[in-house]
């Protein structure tokens, strides 16, 4: 398959997962992008591509299950500050161990959801 089509397919798969589960699209898209783009570009493209996917899914979610303001406000504020902090320090922090810890937490979550 051509590289461009592979990226389109990965984008579609990420969008489907993100819409269906309310998250997780980035974990589908990033492994494909890291194989085809330079490391730092892959992360940037992944974040940029996930933005419209999350906007579409969030609009549907707001219509279907509007969240409580007291829950939404800290999520939005924490997300904004975290995004700034992460953007400022991107590439300066070794993330190898963090990635393993995140993976372990996801496996734990997967087991909890399956049981």
């Amino acid at each position: 398959m051509k590289q461009e089509n592979r990226q389109r397919l990965a984008g579609a798969a990420a969008g489907l997962v993100n819409g269906l589960f309310g998250g997780g699209g980035g974990t589908v898209l990033l492994p494909v992008l890291t194989r085809e783009l330079e490391g730092r570009h892959a992360f940037a493209v992944c974040v940029a591509a996930m933005l419209p996917m999350c906007a579409v899914s969030a609009a549907a979610g707001m219509w279907n299950a509007p969240p409580d303001l007291w829950q939404a406000a800290p999520c939005l504020a924490g997300g904004l500050l975290g995004g700034i902090l992460g953007g400022l320090t991107f590439g300066r922090v070794p993330v190898g161990l963090l990635r393993k810890a995140a993976g372990a937490f996801m496996v734990y979550g997967g087991v909890r959801y399956l049981l």
Partner: peptide, 27 residues
Amino acid sequence: RQAQTLNLLFFLPAAGAALFFHRRNGE
């Protein structure tokens, strides 16, 4: 369902802020 919507909303400012820096760095 609430958690899914919150998670999707959270990503909008988080990604927007991160993108500002990625774009500035030409990535």
